[in-house]
Simulated assay, not measured.
Amino acid sequence: MSDAKYLWTPAPVTSLPVRGSDARFPVKRIFCVGRNYHAHAIEMSRPVDKASSKPFYFLKDPSTLVPSGMTVPYPAGTANYQYEMELVVAIGAEGFRVTESDAGRLIYGYCAGLDMTRRDLQLVARDQGRPWDLGKNFENSTVCGAIVPQGDLGVLKTGAISLQVNGEQKQSADLSQLIWDIPELLADLSHYYHLQPGDLIFTGTPEGVGPVKPGDRLTGHVEKVGDIALTIGTAE
């Protein structure tokens, strides 16, 4: 309602820049796929058998999102703050119970993303059968570069993905190594949610995740999509 009165000023709309446009992409929800590269699943001591498994997801609040290029403080409550480099799919159309063959129409574009993680807190929660929120869903833990409209890219099936810390290569893989590819993820997720314009889907991280410390500089790249950068500031 235009005449509504609030106790305090509502938060502004969370959004991301769009390459080649002065319009911004308003973010609605952030879905993340867990363990979607075999080698990463193994390094997390949770190997995946696709024949007997389905994708699993967790959500992060839009308020956790920061743009590429920022400096963020080393977060409270952790001694093991880690990076996870990912391809992010930006949804631009509604979809519910879509088929894999129809999934491509939901895609507005893509961006490079970082799912920053308080790994020690996540592992405690995982081993105790508790939600991962303290390890995953916290301030400044979601980083995205500019969104590249799908255009001629179509549904991405291949492309190098990599991450460097202080110039040293830490993660290197190809999107063809995803356990569940983009159409499979969108079809599966749309059986549980009505996907909406503004949704972001982090598709999983390759092997090589590891800790960072104050002063570290992270730079990542997804072929055909773009770059991402993050600097780790002093501890809170």
Rank of each mutant, 00 (worst) to 15 (best):
M1G: 11
K5D: 08
Y6I: 05
A11N: 04
S15K: 11
L16G: 00
V18C: 08
P26I: 03
V27A: 02
I30D: 03
N36A: 03
H40I: 06
A41N: 03
I42N: 01
M44E: 01
D49Q: 13
A51D: 15
S53P: 08
P55L: 11
F56P: 01
F56S: 11
K60C: 02
P62Y: 11
P62V: 13
V66L: 13
V66N: 07
V66I: 15
P67R: 01
P67M: 03
S68N: 07
M70D: 12
P75C: 10
A79W: 06
G92R: 10
G95T: 04
G95R: 00
F96N: 04
F96R: 15
T99Y: 05
T99I: 04
E100T: 12
D102Y: 07
A103T: 09
G104K: 05
R118Y: 07
L123W: 13
V124D: 14
A125Q: 03
D127L: 10
Q128R: 15
G135H: 02
E139F: 08
N140F: 14
S141G: 06
C144D: 02
C144S: 08
C144V: 06
I147Q: 00
P149Y: 11
Q150C: 14
G151F: 06
G154H: 03
T158P: 05
G159K: 06
A160M: 08
V165N: 01
E168C: 06
K170V: 13
Q171N: 08
S172L: 15
A173Q: 08
A173C: 09
A173L: 02
L175C: 02
Q177A: 14
E184W: 06
L186H: 04
L189T: 00
H191F: 09
H191S: 14
Y192L: 09
H194A: 15
L195N: 00
Q196C: 13
Q196L: 12
L200P: 05
T203E: 12
T205I: 07
E207H: 10
V212E: 02
K213Q: 15
L218C: 04
L218G: 00
G220Y: 10
E223K: 04
A229V: 07
I232N: 05
